[in-house]
């Protein structure tokens, strides 16, 4: 849409015989005022609006299909009206959705973003931006929208930091290969709990770093994982250090970095009281390869309680207080003494 300004010149030095009016084709009288507009000549009475036949105000006219109109008539006849605000559109007109718009009036009907420069998509007779269109479409089809390119995701999406993406926008943190939906997000690595520290790895690299390795056979654990002693184990490889039978979910006991079944833990570490045969919860008395709870550490002959300081004799690897030992048959005492002395001699 353009308007021009015409020039009025005095026809003095021109050869009038060769000139004629563009509208009526008649010649010009000498000294008559002639209008010159872009090299075309007009009688002043002929240089008028094609609609109202009145001269152009300030010589400003609008030309459309070879005819000239005054500003008012041109607007009335041809200028576009904005479909939103109803005003004439002067300057840049956006023709879209079978209507005209001011650039600032043509916006996404969902997010109200200006669409003049980014383009739009017609969706159920609405003008939508690409993002909103993709969202709407995804909602309808149940598909995901990539948060990077806003396109629909046809296959399985790649999930990352709580959003979905096309896998091909990312590369493996370790080997750099392009990713797909099988990529693994490594969350909260030790000391890094924040979501934005998460990283993506291809399955291969993830397997190498993330899949637990059995502490016994050093092979990856595909099925159930037992975690104990600060390591991972195949269920069937987490066994008693003594009898090598798997615990299979049964209780195990840890001692010096090794795991034991109940039987062997108590057998090896003597935590069953010799008298009550119960696990000793509190203080443990240990002597003669046995253990006693506080309540049951006593002379094996008279059942008199003994303390840490009590002195006792050994009889068949059981403690006997001096009082009882003195009441043993002389003959037995003599033999026990001899046996003891022989053992001492042998050990020297």
């Amino acid at each position: 849409m353009m308007y021009s300004k015409a020039e009025v010149v005095q026809a003095i030095n021109m050869s009038l015989g060769a000139m004629h009016c563009t509208r009526c084709a008649d010649g010009f009288e000498p000294n008559e005022k002639i209008v010159n507009s872009n090299g075309e000549l007009w009688h002043t009475q002929c240089f008028v609006c094609a609609q109202c036949f009145r001269p152009f105000q300030d010589g400003i006219f609008y030309e459309f299909e070879g005819r000239k109109y005054c500003e008012r008539d041109f607007h009335v006849l041809f200028a576009p009206c904005c479909n939103k605000c109803g005003e004439f559109v002067i300057g840049r007109v956006i023709k879209a959705m079978s209507a005209s718009w001011h650039p600032q009036c043509f916006r996404c009907q969902l997010c109200a973003k200006e669409l003049a420069d980014s383009g739009f998509i017609r969706n159920q007779n609405r003008a939508l931006c690409h993002e909103c269109n993709a969202k709407v479409k995804a909602e309808i089809t149940g598909r995901y929208v990539c948060q990077k390119c806003h396109g629909l995701i046809d296959e399985e999406p790649l999930r990352f930091r709580g959003e979905v993406y096309h896998g091909y926008h990312f590369n493996c943190t370790a080997c750099g290969t392009e990713l797909d939906s099988t990529a693994r997000e490594v969350k909260s690595r030790p000391g890094l709990a924040a979501n934005d520290m998460n990283e993506l790895y291809c399955l291969r690299c993830h397997d190498k770093m993330g899949i637990p390795i059995c502490g016994a056979c050093r092979r990856p654990i595909e099925e159930r994982v037992v975690t104990a002693l600060g390591k991972h184990w195949h269920v069937e490889h987490f066994v008693c250090a003594k009898c090598e039978k798997p615990f299979l979910g049964h209780r195990h006991y840890e001692k010096r970095g090794l795991a034991y079944c109940e039987t062997h833990y108590h057998q090896l570490f003597g935590n069953l009281c010799f008298v009550c045969n119960q696990v000793i919860a509190g203080d443990v008395f240990t002597a003669l390869n046995k253990a006693w709870c506080v309540h049951h550490f006593a002379c094996s002959v008279c059942d008199t309680k003994m303390t840490q300081k009590s002195k006792f004799y050994e009889y068949d690897e059981k403690p006997v207080c001096k009082k009882c030992y003195d009441r043993f048959p002389n003959e037995l005492r003599r033999r026990l003494r001899d046996a003891h002395e022989n053992t001492m001699k042998k050990n020297v």
Partner: peptide
């Protein structure tokens, strides 16, 4: 038999 552990006793002299 498990007669060599630290909690075991085997007496066989004489």
């Amino acid at each position: 038999l498990d007669l060599l552990s630290n909690k075991s006793v085997m007496k066989m002299e004489e």
